[in-house]
């Protein structure tokens, strides 16, 4: 169920990127898409009523292995968030430059390139 919601969120983002005319809305759509993927990755490693994956010396190793959530997706998502930040920052910077040159955020009015 939660997986299906993640994919729906992904499709919402994809719709925003593909169909919106405003550059800012395209960027927001892109961010939604990014978050949907991150959310999906996190839910992959989730366990119901799981504990944080930090092992201390008092803990039984078998109990830890059975109860803790999967730490690897969390590490992956941290990296993916940073990458998403880089791409979003790049997009915003380019959008600001486009606004300086064209005076508009509307993609239908920015048409110096053909084909």
């Amino acid at each position: 169920m939660i997986y299906a919601l993640c994919l729906t969120l992904f499709l919402v983002g994809l719709y925003g990127v593909c169909c919106k005319k405003n550059l800012v809305k395209i960027i927001i759509g892109f961010m939604i898409m990014d978050y949907a993927v991150n959310l999906f990755l996190i839910t992959v490693g989730y366990k119901k009523s799981g504990i944080a994956p930090i092992l201390d010396s008092t803990m039984n190793i078998n109990y830890f292995a059975a109860k803790s959530v999967d730490p690897l997706p969390q590490a992956l998502v941290l990296t993916a968030i940073v990458i998403g930040l880089g791409v979003t920052a790049m997009m915003v910077a380019v959008a600001i430059r486009i606004y300086e040159k064209h005076g508009t955020f509307d993609v239908t009015k920015i048409r110096k390139l053909k084909g």
């Binding site: 993927v37 791409v87 380019v94 390139l113």
Partner: peptide, 23 residues
Amino acid sequence: AEEIEASFKYIVMGGIASAFILL
């Protein structure tokens, strides 16, 4: 102006591609 516009187009397409790959 043209280069910035091309760059934005490229970022959008590249970003979609990356999202699919990560998924």
